[in-house]
Amino acid sequence: MSSRSPRSVLPGFGLSLGFTIAYLSLIVLVPLAAAFIKTSGMTWNEFVDAVASRQVLASYRLSFGISFLAAAVNAFFGLIVAWVLVRYPFPGKRIVDAVVDLPFALPTAVAGIALTAIYARNGWLGFLEPVWGGVVGPDGHVVSNGLVQYLDQLLPGVNWGEWLGLKIAFDRPGIFIALTFIGLPFVVRTLQPVLEELEPEFEEASATLGATRWQTIRKVIFPQLLPALITGFTLSFARALGEYGSVVFIAGNKPLHSEITPLLIMTKLEQFDYRGATAIAVILLVTSFTLLLLINLLQSWTRRHQRA
């Protein structure tokens, strides 16, 4: 960072840049560095023990897997929502558009308890639980089949009940629902401006050249949306990886089954295992920063290649 004042007639360069860097360092850089410094004090074996124990590895699989799934679902529905919001007129559009930002505005703890209340057995959507995981009697016998049991019969050999969870709230499906909730706006808000700037000329040109509407969407519109869609997906995925507040209430937090990685960090902190917590945090931080870097690279690539 060069602090040499570029001679400019506008005042305040030194003051504003100096304050920016000082405040950035104090609030963001130094505390973040602390995590890496703390970890650098560990031996390699200590580090591996902390970040690759059975419980932690299970949490990675869970966090990465469900975050990916939630981001993929958000990419799909987010594309539809963005398309409908930009292209189709319908009454109440302004309100719908505002509602998309709800997950940004609604505190995660509130989302967490609200989703739990809805999907718990006695909640508004509690009837979905037997449809999903069947009804298991007190003796452990399946009283009536749900989707999971049918899947068991259709594709035996996989413990579907363990993988997909038999309940919705207090089980893996609940985590998926919470992560989908918090990730949705990222996809919609990244796609919307790109869709708005898409000139109708492209589609008209495609149509005059004899393409069907579906061909136009697939070959002309979709490729132009793809970078934004990937960006939105990645943002949604990164956010889901780190999410804590909305998940803890609905996850059930069963060890090795429904403990997400941020929860493990929290648990270790409560046991005053700062080193263990920090080591896992470093793994998550490096992952997030890598994702951030990838998004930046993708965006600069897009800027260079789509400036036609």
């Binding site: 963001v28 505390p31 973040l32 602390a34 995590a35 703390k38 995660t108 990164a238 990886l241 780190g242 999410e243 804590y244 507040g245 941020p262 929860l263 960090i265 929290m266 902190l269 700062y274 917590a277 920090t278 945090a281 998550l284 931080l285 997030s288 920063f289 994702l291 951030l292």
Partner: peptide, 16 residues
């Protein structure tokens, strides 16, 4: 950067 950091980690680094 802070947007890319998990809330739990945001708290953790201040504890450190």
């Amino acid at each position: 950067l802070p947007f890319a950091v998990s809330p739990v980690i945001s708290g953790l680094i201040y504890v450190l």
